[in-house]
Nucleic acid binder design. Sequence first.
DNA 1: CGGCGTTTTGAGAGAGCTCAACATCGGTGG
DNA 2: CCACCGATGTTGAGCTCTCTCAAAACGCCG
Lengths: 198, 198
Amino acid sequence: MDWLPRSMINASRVRTLGIDEHLFRKGDTVFGIFEVIKGRLSMVRHTSEGQKVVIHSSLEGSLFAEAALFATEYHCDGVAVEETEVRVFDKDAVFAAFRDNPELAENFMAVLARQVQVLRAKLEQRSIRSARQRLIHHFILSAEEDGRTVPLKGTLKDLAVELGLTHEALYRTLAKLEKEGLVERSATVVLLQPKLFI
Amino acid sequence: MDWLPRSMINASRVRTLGIDEHLFRKGDTVFGIFEVIKGRLSMVRHTSEGQKVVIHSSLEGSLFAEAALFATEYHCDGVAVEETEVRVFDKDAVFAAFRDNPELAENFMAVLARQVQVLRAKLEQRSIRSARQRLIHHFILSAEEDGRTVPLKGTLKDLAVELGLTHEALYRTLAKLEKEGLVERSATVVLLQPKLFI
DNA sequence: CGGCGTTTTGAGAGAGCTCAACATCGGTGG
DNA sequence: CCACCGATGTTGAGCTCTCTCAAAACGCCG
């Protein structure tokens, strides 16, 4: 959210939610959009019988319910899955800022466009069924400029989640690639070997 | 693209691409963004050894490379996978239009925000591994107001593709749900039965 | 009728998931 | 300093589920 002007951040407020606490409910008039600072929020719809269907589950640092800007009512529930902190941006204030400051509007567009890009890439990734191919795909796309070094941020478990694999599957696949000499590993980096690209 | 003013559409041009023909290449200066009218485009990156990695594959009717609006260079190749028709919107013209017409900018934001919403929902759906649960999830979310009727648009094969399943898996799963009395089917509609929601 | 695409069902194999045990490492407190 | 603990990392075995390949029924249209 580094693209936001100070003024907008100052005009926002932070709210803390306990587990299962609602940020908004279906049918509520849209009052704002959110940034998840800490914790996790879900968008949930309820069936007539009260069963929950999760539409979306947020990550820390992401925008939440930004599409609500262009609606009058929320059309699902926003619920905290864990203890969560959200920054609340007032809808009218956001729009006013956009009109005042076209550059801000462009920044927001850029953020959304980037999101779309990332999400589409992720979806493409998930369409690869084989753990091996999915991992290779990920490695190649997240390699640095040299095209061979992939920095490991966070734990392998986290990576497994990001890739939509169980951690066991990831460990095994990675070990196999290593044994076959397709990659080399250190604690912080994966080095892609030429063979991998053939 | 119904939110675009006539003037923008008139200012655009349509281009036809043959299979494997490039719309743009990595490093090219961004000249515009696109709407896929017919056919399919892919965003592709090449490894140092020349292997292709697909980042994204477009659907008909969708925007393509809209994130490029906020970059100076394309950072992957845009290639036609089939015989493809694209509408080309000049980058500068788009920006000029946004500045001239804040409402247009807002419309564009709304389109992007909606995209993000849809993509996130799809990603959530794909995170459900079981064909059965994925199908049920889809049914419940795409039910009409009554919460029980799901219209079937297109063939079941198409639905299978949308859900990321083979058509065989879809047929079988659907048949099973039907046999268990969880849904009823006609040619055009799936009726969700109360049992399904328990 | 004949051909094409969708729908359906069958059998088999492979891949990833689940459950389980164990190693490793870093931190914490006695 | 060591014992303990929790989380990550690792490997094993079995199972389930979906994919793949195959074949056939069905419906539609020329």
